[in-house]
Design a binder for these strands. Structure first.
Lengths: 118, 118
DNA sequence: AATAAAAGTTAGCACATCCTAACTTATTTG
DNA sequence: CAAATAAGTTAGGATGTGCTAACTTTTATT
């Protein structure tokens, strides 16, 4: 099963929370993304089944090597796009919001070209 | 009912086909987008209900004023984004493909800033 | 006129992705 | 310890959006 855009967002959020708070549980993801607990619960199961995360007995979420790579890749795209949009004069808030949407749909080629342009 | 990303794509395609062939029927949209006839049939009903298109007795699709404005807006974003990506060095094929995905998710603000940059 | 081809619709499936309601389980606290 | 709080799950619903199968209707062709 190929990862979906929503899956990428969940992984990205997990990475973000890990940086920000150290440990991450489902409820943290739910609060951060403003989603219901059941939505996150199901999403975590899908990510677990796909081998992107592991959940220990205490409910703490760990990215697997694979999941971590994916999360970092999305996060990198996000950071670059935000920076790029800011350079174009887009406001911080809008840049973040748009980056979050664009990050899932741009090709590797476009990503590289933007990188070069910066 | 707010228009969806798929709805924007259908409107854009209708506008494109109108430019290219003059008259547009459901089947033309289906062929152009590589979708099944039932998928297009339903989409056209949704667009019709929302007041974006009208369909005459012969099955010819006409954009309403509202639908036309929307279609042109999407199309404009598409053109600008393609041009912008080409300028960045992205290949023609990828630029078209990425533009088609980005055009639905960028804010008016980002659109304006890209416009200014060009 | 009979058959074939083309266009469109209806019905129903699949999947992604969000939700609420209601439950279990575990932890905290008065 | 009993009750409250917090975390997680199960069950089921809604919407968007694609599909196939099978039907109708219209148009064209032989």
């Amino acid at each position: 099963m190929k990862i979906q855009e929503s899956g990428e967002n969940y992984l990205e959020t997990i990475l973000l929370l890990k940086k920000k708070k150290g440990a991450v549980r489902s409820v943290d993801v739910a609060v951060e993304m403003n989603f219901s607990k059941p939505s996150v619960s199901r999403a975590m199961n899908i990510l677990k089944t796909a081998g992107h995360i592991e959940i220990d007995q205490n409910g703490f979420i760990k990215l697997t090597e694979q999941g971590d790579a994916l999360a970092r890749s999305v996060y990198e795209r996000h950071e670059l796009l935000t920076f790029f949009l800011r350079k174009l004069g887009v406001s911080e808030e809008t840049a973040a919001k748009d980056a979050c949407r664009i990050e899932h749909v741009i090709s590797a080629e476009t990503f590289e070209k933007i990188k070069e342009a910066m």
